[in-house]
Design a protein around this nucleic acid. Structure first.
Lengths: 365, 365
DNA sequence: CAGGCGACGGCAAGCGGTTGCCACCAGTTG
DNA sequence: CAACTGGTGGCAACCGCTTGCCGTCGCCTG
């Protein structure tokens, strides 16, 4: 692989347009134009300049360029927690879209702390052209303030007057529910996540509406529970106390804890209980049985966010950028099947040690 | 009147030292010094200036500052794949250490592509003060060239003349092995990862040396296998054909596939076979039984890398920065226990459908 | 052949900070 | 009392690149 500056291997100052200009016998401004204003300079001189620049290993200094133009070719991508499996692909989609347009992303990881988030944002915002908020602890009003400062797009959060991209929650719930209905389930429980989570309300409402359209389907709700494996374990106890054949769980982490505890309670999955999660996290495919789950369009979410952001930066008006609801996709694995016949319904047994093991939170490395 | 700043017209320009200077009745240079050279200006004037600056909402423009000083307060953190669970914590450790020193990290995600890596690096390198290579596809020589250009630290890779931080592989293997030995195991198999992986050779060698020191312990090696869940499944077949009671597996992903397949072959884990992995990935705590594993000091790896990098940037000589081998830690979960008594050794049964399920690779979202 | 015009290159003024150097003003010192 | 000194503040020259504006020149037009 070629070194970045073939000619100069030492760490001294890289060549500038002045060096190139001198070598080519032209003015610095001509060198500048040869690169940034293609038609403006005679084709042959331009070619000669580029030739010489290449020989010298010249590369435009992005900082110097940014100063007069304000055009840094950087955006910040703020996430409250890059460790959360949920955000990798958003980040990747965003980075890919940015790279395609020769933009660099500054990743502001808040590590779940409001203070760190503020600091990271403070540190990066002055030098970027726009901001993508992939997830944030900030209040709506704080976000609106920030949006006044720089072009900004929010992901998966609906704030009036701030352009955003979100997943189509109604669609995701429809996919989960109709999958279960097609398998023959008629009684479905929604295992709720945190009450404060926007998506939680959206999901339950969507499921409720879905059921309202068909009188052979009964849905109910349990929760709220914390959105963790431990939360799923708690939910399993409550679930066992009633008689529905399938669960749609707020997220995969909960669904995994839920399945583990249900198993310990003597239920066979999917024979006795079918389980569908949301998010399609990496571990969904690693557990046994594999978890059927609805995957959000993470990658697309990220890339659309950046696309819209760049449009905004390019001068598009806020109102011209439509809020987008992106389609989800169902991954069928082994945690769903037709419901058991009525007479063979499962009854919970005494909880064993294995079940309580699920109470342990993932240990921090 | 500034036609040079077409963007600034909508969102108005933030205040500069000139604005502050005028408001305070001093020269711009004094304002500059009030912030960047604390003792240089009279304490009371400095205070007054800071006061006025705060009122105006002045914030130093990092780009403008970087131009004359070359001090951008940014470093790039290159990872071949931010989606890999292995790198989150390295990234976090690095970001935290950087943030502490008011440095911003540019994340260059190569998405496993050499071309993208090159591009990302090209794009970011000119505007940063140093580079951390968390994982890379680059050749040793390419890395050495890059190191000539800017201060650089490599993580988990040993390149002569390039400062690095690595995990203590010998220690990690000792922890795994002595844990098993203490439980009573005397015959241990090492399930190898890719032959090309540096860590793989290190681990087998360390295990071999560990065993050489004690004549009641027998170790052997199987592999190489791909470092995936599917690789672990293949290894399980081979493992079943011999008679050791414990496996130390190249990484957690393989270990999970390995356990799953072994289970399908009729082995009880840990009663029949004890399994230890490496890396302590998130899923290690989600599978049943929980996987006992040796955790690399990821966070520390990242933060030490940045610490050393900043030292290098600060002018420390390369040789002054010692290569570091950082200590690992064993997480005991449920996949290890004393070995079965000799007469109750397990025999593999016919493989069932569940076993082959493990062959599926995690589906890409 | 004068006037006009487009193509092309150069000049110089920034962008917003930093910093070497000098000026000025007490306050000391011999 | 002159010379010296340390503490402060201002001036102006950068850092490397962009770009408005102007000058030059060759060519076209009437």
């Amino acid at each position: 692989m070629s070194p970045i500056h073939p000619q100069r291997t030492s760490r001294d100052a890289p060549p500038t347009i002045y060096d190139v200009a001198r070598a080519a016998g032209v003015a610095p401004s001509t060198v500048s134009r040869a690169f940034s204003r293609p038609g403006r300079v005679n084709a042959t001189t331009a070619e000669r300049i580029r030739q010489i620049a290449a020989e010298l290993g010249y590369r435009a200094n992005p900082i110097a360029r940014a100063l007069p133009t304000g055009h840094t070719s950087m955006i910040t991508l703020a996430s409250s927690d890059i460790t959360n499996p949920y955000y990798f692909e958003i980040i990747r989609g965003a980075q890919a879209a940015a790279a395609e347009r020769h933009y660099t992303t500054l990743l502001a990881d808040a590590q779940e702390s409001g203070v760190l988030e503020r600091e990271a944002l403070d540190r990066t915002v002055p030098s970027v052209e726009g901001i993508v908020l992939a997830s944030t602890r900030m209040s709506d009003t704080a976000i609106r303030m920030l949006a006044k400062l720089k072009p900004l797009i929010v992901v998966n959060r609906d704030i009036t007057d701030v352009p955003n991209v979100v997943t189509d929650h109604a669609m995701s719930v429809h996919q989960a529910a109709s999958h279960l209905v097609e398998l023959g389930h008629r009684r479905i429980t929604y295992i709720g996540g945190p009450e404060a989570a926007w998506a939680n309300g959206m999901r339950w409402r969507a499921l409720h509406e879905y059921a309202a359209g068909r009188d052979d389907l009964h849905v109910r709700q349990l929760g709220p529970y914390p959105p963790t494996a431990a939360g799923g374990v708690r939910a399993a106890d409550d679930f066992a106390a009633q008689r529905t054949t399938a669960a749609i769980v707020y997220n995969d982490l909960m669904a995994i804890g839920f399945m583990r505890c249900l198993h310990a309670l003597g239920a066979r999955i999917p024979a006795d209980v079918s389980v569908v999660g949301f998010d399609n996290i990496f571990a969904a495919d690693l557990v046994v049985p594999g978890l059927t789950t609805v995957a959000p369009p993470l990658r697309t979410l990220g890339s659309m966010a950046v696309h819209n952001l760049l449009a905004l930066i390019g001068g598009a008006h806020t109102t011209a950028v439509q809020p987008l609801a992106l389609p989800t996709r169902l991954y069928e694995r082994e945690s769903t099947s037709p419901p058991p016949s009525r007479r063979r319904a499962w009854r919970p047994v005494e909880r064993t040690a294995a079940a309580t093991a699920g109470n342990r939170l993932p240990s921090p490395p």
